[in-house]
Amino acid sequence: MPPTDAPPDLTRAIDPATLARFSADLSALCDPAHDRVLVAVSGGPDSVALLLLTHALLGERCIAATVDHGLRPEAADEAAWVADLCAASGIDHAVLSGELPERTGHTANLSARARALRYELLQAHADAVGATQIATAHHADDQVETLIMRLNRGAGVGGLAGVRARSGRVIRPLLGWRRAELGAIVAAAGIVAVEDPSNVSDRFYRARLRKQLAAIDWIDPSRVAASAAALADAEDAIVWMVRQLGTDRIAADGDSLMLDPRDLPFELVRRLVEQCIRQIDPAAEIRGSALVRMVKALESGETAMLGGVAAVALSPAAWRFRKAPPRRLL
Rank of each mutant, 00 (worst) to 15 (best):
M1H: 08
D5P: 07
P8C: 05
T11M: 06
D15I: 05
P16V: 04
T18I: 01
D25L: 02
A28H: 10
C30F: 01
D31P: 06
D35R: 00
V37S: 03
V41M: 12
G44A: 11
D46L: 02
A49R: 12
L51T: 11
L51V: 08
T54G: 01
A56F: 00
G59F: 00
E60M: 05
C62V: 00
I63S: 07
V67R: 15
R72P: 03
A75M: 07
D77R: 13
L85A: 05
A87T: 07
E102Q: 14
E102M: 11
L121H: 13
H125P: 11
A128W: 04
A128E: 13
Q133H: 13
I134Y: 00
I134Q: 00
T136M: 09
H138P: 03
H138M: 01
A140P: 08
V144F: 00
E145Y: 00
I148V: 11
G159V: 06
G162M: 09
G162T: 05
R164W: 00
G168C: 03
G168V: 06
G168D: 09
R172K: 15
L175N: 03
W177M: 05
R179M: 05
L182A: 02
L182K: 10
A188G: 03
G190M: 09
I191F: 03
I191L: 06
P197N: 14
S198W: 08
S201G: 13
Q212A: 10
Q212P: 02
A214K: 14
I219P: 03
I219L: 13
V224W: 10
V224Y: 08
A226C: 05
A234R: 09
V242C: 12
V242G: 11
R243L: 08
L245T: 06
G246L: 02
T247P: 06
D255G: 09
L257Y: 01
L257H: 01
L259W: 00
R262H: 10
L264V: 04
F266P: 00
V269Q: 14
R270E: 14
V273H: 06
Q275Y: 08
P282T: 09
A283Q: 14
A283V: 09
I286A: 10
G288S: 14
L291D: 04
V292I: 14
M294V: 15
K296P: 04
A297M: 07
A297W: 03
E299N: 07
A304N: 06
G308E: 10
A311V: 15
P316C: 08
A324V: 10
P325I: 15
P326Y: 04
L330W: 03
